[in-house]
Nucleic acid binder design. Structure first.
Length: 590
DNA sequence: GCCGTTTTCGGCCCGACTGTTTTCAGTCG
């Protein structure tokens, strides 16, 4: 039986195939919206279908609900079968090539009969594409480059948030070196703190945009200038990362920053709200439409007679639309707009300055690179009040996990270091969750530990049932444990392990424990969706660094960003509490 | 295809840039 994710994929495929057929773009979008709605259902899909309540879900109407029901019960959809019969599977891949959209793909199929990336490449190399009406030698070349990038993308991963932000901040510094730069910020998915980014969006205010755009092209890592217009310049860095720079006059900066921050889904909905209230919204500003406003057509800017609303900030923009300010990390159209309209967005999202203790740190006792004392002094220098030392337990042999004897000797060392530093040191362990669901320490040790992070490091490919049972057992243990590495993903390398998250969180909520937000840029577990499920159950959160070196303590920033995406508030975070309160809250044995 | 405290029909977000064109279509975000 298909699950909701498979059904969402099928709806998206229908949308793409309809697009190829030149269908009404709004119809195409309807399938995309429907797919997303199915994916994000809070309620069980089977129940909704059985009780015939699917059309109550926004974005799903009569037609799509029938297709969903058919996909759910039979695994098939007549329309999808029909579309697939008309379009060979390789054609959808053609749409993935940048430069190519539905119209060009259709033209290429029609004129040259190409139906796969390989065939298209051959046609380009043979010079057959340039002869087509609407195409030219330049387009042919760009398609070839696009094919190269598609293959690179398929074989490599997107850029990790931390890498993208690091280079992005270097670009901001570089822009500051130009007197033409009045304001500048990172925007796009980097500003929203998505775990990976496709390209980097930079926005700037200037009265001399040409000079500033020119300045960007001299950033040392620029390999190629891809596009150059009056307000937008695109360059590609040596790493392959594309950087878009948009420049506007200072008075248009707030709406530009907002526009380029996205997400697209957030904007589409926001613009609909603006229109309902008699405005039109774009990167150039918020405009009050004249009373006899013309219907929306091919847009050439706001219609004549529109009046620009002066806005000094993003906050002012949301206020003008009668809603709370939405923090960038929340702008995904996942309920934040409705909440902002009703005034129930959290006003106290956790911020980095709220965090008082570094949690989940390794040392040379297991697979860390720094000693207990080095980690302690580094955390102290960062202004932390406490640090939890949580080296691996014995079954993590590959990581130098500790046995009981070495753990005792580590405690002696921690005591010695504690006498030399002000920061409070807590004795903990990252205890493996064994295959049975037990923890990798005898009770006598658990009773003496001050912090336990419980993680899975092995046997990750269990089936969903078995894995769920394993985790539920671990979470139900009466000790307080922090669920570490929830779902165990490695971005771009390893998918999350299979389990029924809500059952695990129910077990955690019914027992004593918290869920970890791991700041390691390659992990960023738990993801925002899981965090929202945890919050809904009152499960508290710990923001961890999973540090294996002094430098890794900087990962706190990414843990905070990820938590914010999950709507985590200051009060939800245990290590936003003072040292003694934290110790009391997480002590494994009460 | 979806949707409706003005609507069950007629809307549906908006603009920049490129290449191939003589005024614009297609793509992208």
């Amino acid at each position: 039986m298909l699950d909701k994710f498979a059904i969402a994929r099928a709806l998206r495929e229908i949308g793409m195939l309809l697009e190829l057929e030149g269908e009404n773009p709004f119809k195409v979008r309807a399938y995309d919206r429907g797919a997303r709605a199915v994916e994000e259902l809070a309620e069980d899909l089977g129940t909704l279908v059985r009780e015939d309540r699917l059309t109550d879900v926004p974005g799903i109407g009569e037609a799509i609900s029938k297709k969903v029901a058919s996909l759910l019960t039979t695994g098939r959809s007549g329309l999808l079968d029909e579309l697939r019969a008309k379009h060979p599977p390789g054609v959808l891949e053609l749409l993935q090539i940048s430069e190519l959209g539905p119209k060009k793909v259709a033209a290429l199929r029609e004129a040259l009969g190409v139906s796969s990336v390989d065939e298209l490449e051959a046609a380009c190399l043979a010079g057959r594409v340039r002869e087509l009406r609407g195409f030219g030698a330049r387009t042919e070349q760009k398609i070839l480059e696009g094919i190269g990038r598609l293959r690179a993308r398929l074989s490599s991963r997107r850029t990790l948030l931390a890498e993208a932000v690091e280079v992005g901040e270097r670009i901001l510094d570089h822009l500051d070196g130009s007197s033409a730069c009045l304001r500048r910020d990172l925007a796009g998915s980097a500003r929203r703190a998505r775990e990976t980014v496709g390209d980097l969006d930079v926005v700037a205010a200037s009265t001399d945009p040409a000079a500033l755009a020119e300045h960007l092209t001299h950033f040392p890592l620029v390999a190629e200038v891809v596009a150059r217009g009056e307000t937008k310049t695109t360059v590609r860095l040596g790493s392959g990362l594309a950087v878009d720079l948009r420049i506007v006059p200072p008075e248009d900066y707030p709406t530009l920053l907002h526009h380029l921050t996205g997400s697209k889904a957030h904007h589409v909905k926001l613009r609909g709200i603006a229109r309902d209230r008699g405005y039109t919204l774009s990167e150039w500003g918020l405009f009050r439409l004249p009373p006899d406003r013309p219907p929306v057509g091919a847009s050439d800017g706001p219609p004549p007679g529109s009046e620009k609303v002066p806005l000094e900030s993003e906050e002012a923009l949301y206020a003008a639309l009668g809603m709370q300010h939405v923090q960038p990390e929340l702008r995904e159209d996942e309920g934040e707009i409705e909440a902002a309209l009703e005034g129930r967005l959290p006003r106290d999202l956790v911020a980095i300055d709220d965090v008082r203790g570094m949690v989940h740190c390794h040392t040379t006792w297991s697979d860390g690179l720094a000693s207990v004392e080095e980690m302690a002094r580094a955390a102290e220098a960062l202004g932390m009040e406490y640090l939890t030392i949580t080296d691996h337990s014995g079954s993590a042999g590959y990581a130098g996990g500790l046995d009981v004897d070495r753990l005792r000797r580590q405690w002696d060392e921690i005591d010695r270091v504690q006498e030399k530093v002000k920061i409070r040191l807590l004795k903990g362990s990252e205890a493996d969750i064994l295959e049975s669901g037990g923890l990798d320490w005898p009770d006598a040790v658990l009773e003496r530990l001050e912090v336990v992070v419980a993680s899975i490091h092995s046997r990750m490919k269990m089936g969903e049932d078995e894995m769920t049972r394993r985790l539920v057992r671990a979470m139900e243990l009466p000790v307080f444990k922090i669920w570490g590495h929830a779902l165990g993903r490695l971005l771009g390398e390893r998918d999350p392990y299979a389990c029924r998250v809500e059952e695990v969180l129910d077990a955690l909520a019914g027992s004593r424990g918290a869920v970890e937000v791991n700041g390691d840029p390659k992990r960023l577990e738990a993801d925002p969706r899981l965090l929202r499920l945890a919050r809904a159950r009152g499960v508290p959160v710990v923001l961890s660094v999973d540090a294996h070196s002094v430098k890794d303590l900087g990962s706190l920033r990414w843990a905070v960003a990820t938590a914010r995406r999950g709507w985590v508030r200051r009060g939800d975070v245990l290590n936003a509490r003072p040292a003694e309160a934290f110790r009391e809250a997480v002590r494994p044995v009460a």
